[in-house]
Amino acid sequence: MENLNLFVKSIFIDNMIFAYFLGMCSYLAVSKNVKTAFGLGIAVTFVLAITLPVNYLLETYVLKAGALKWLGPEYAQLDLSFLSLIMFIAIIASMVQLVEMFVEKYSPSLYASLGIFLPLIAVNCAILGGSLFMQQRNFPSVTSATVYGIGSGLGWLLAIVCLAAIREKLSYSNIPAPLRGIGITFIITGLMGIAFMSFLGIKL
């Protein structure tokens, strides 16, 4: 039940785009049509679902203050948390690389559609942001970290697909010249954010 709550919350309320503006760069750049937007969204969800549990285990068993206790009592006071940024980004970069190789080998058709986006994802703030929020919120178990990863990935997917759909329609409308392109996209995202705020307070 708690996990379901976390899942819904991470999709609608703590939405990566509308509440924290994470992954905005690719969100704005790749939202010109629905198909590519969907591809990128799937890739982000996939990578978030893999990197969050890995980083959770790394955080709990290596980086946190006193996490190295399992090596022996003399390691109990070690606190490696200042290394977490560099470790997380290293894990993310290598996981993305691994996922890319894996997908290329076993599903060439998926690779053909995701291929160009996968390397981009290593520097997508939504991925690192997910890990940092996970660290900040102290999730009780690896399951809830995974659920959070999948949920926030799906929230990102939802946001980018909605925006792409609106932008496809928008190309037929008459917008003031200075707002054309990026300006109107910002305003639409803002309005979508206000709409998403109405989910605030939902609890299962």
Binding site: P178, L179, G183, F186, T189, G190
Partner: peptide, 19 residues
């Protein structure tokens, strides 16, 4: 104070800058 207004403020800056 809420997040969405940040986007709209930036959009206004873009509007002025591009005009």
């Amino acid at each position: 104070i809420l997040p969405p207004m940040a986007l709209i403020t930036v959009a206004c800056i873009i509007w002025v800058h591009r005009s």
